[in-house]
């Protein structure tokens, strides 16, 4: 059904998205926690920053990543001293995906954290649990379905990431050419309609699967929060 080349594209896409989501999940959770619980006015600023990739043109995000992570950039220069470069590498594609997925993940996680009743955490404290034990045994498990839903949603967003990726790490087959980039490349060449169709159907199937998984997790969150 799929050619060897197309299998490689699929594998690379899954790899990029998986790494992007897993790498950015702790940051997303920390942001979500701060936005849900933080009282400091500065959290409003972070709220805006986190949501920037949702509204900015992706090509602008890609350009910003180029500025920061390019060989001359503040982060890229530092990484280069340690022999690491994200430019034109699949890791760069994962970074672009992670940044673009962050707002969606934060939103889903924030909702689930806001649904955790602080009164249950207070009860845990009176039973002898310190703040970290309370977090690990009460807050995190109660928020977990929403956290997972956010990760699945972020994964779906990563699979579809195009603009920031092509701007930041270009469209290199076998290295940075994920599904959307491969579809775009195939569209440029006459006679590739069948390839486009197969890859597009694959995209639809993957996205649908991820959205269904995310929705199932969301419903489980609804159930686990039924009060006694």
């Amino acid at each position: 059904m799929l050619s060897a080349e197309e299998w490689d594209i699929l594998r690379l896409s899954l790899q990029v998205s998986m790494v992007a989501v897993l790498a950015v999940a702790p940051l997303a959770f920390a942001c979500a926690w701060g936005l849900a619980r933080g009282r400091h006015p500065l959290w409003v600023l972070l709220d805006g920053l986190v949501h920037l990739p949702l509204v900015l043109p992706p090509v602008v995000m890609g350009w910003l990543l180029l500025l920061a992570f390019g060989a001359q950039g503040p982060v890229g220069g530092w990484l280069a001293e340690h022999g690491i470069s994200l430019m034109f590498r699949w890791t760069g594609a994962a970074l672009a995906s992670a940044v673009m997925a962050l707002p969606l993940m934060v939103r889903a996680m924030r909702l689930s954290i806001e649904a955790v009743d602080p009164k249950l955490e207070a009860a845990a404290r009176t039973l002898g649990a310190g703040p970290w034990q309370t977090f690990a045994s009460i807050s995190l498990p109660l928020a977990m379905p929403g956290v997972l839903a956010g990760m699945v949603l972020g994964f779906a967003r990563s699979l579809g990431e195009f603009g920031a990726t092509i701007t930041f790490v270009s469209n290199i087959p076998g290295e940075t050419q994920t599904l959307p980039l491969a579809i775009y490349a195939a569209l440029q060449v006459p006679g590739q309609e069948q390839v486009v169709t197969r890859l597009a159907l694959l995209s639809v199937a993957l996205s649908l699967l991820a959205l269904v998984a995310s929705e199932v997790l969301n419903r489980r969150m609804g159930r686990s929060h039924v009060r006694d």
């Binding site: 207070a122 009860a123 845990a124 009176t126 009460i138 498990p141 109660l142 686990s224």
Partner: peptide, 20 residues
């Protein structure tokens, strides 16, 4: 003292049993 150091047996009006 922090709540976890007080060893009070607090039975809340709304019980607050852990639902999970």
């Amino acid at each position: 003292l922090a709540p976890e150091q007080r060893r009070c047996g607090y039975v809340f009006q709304d019980k607050r049993l852990f639902p999970h």
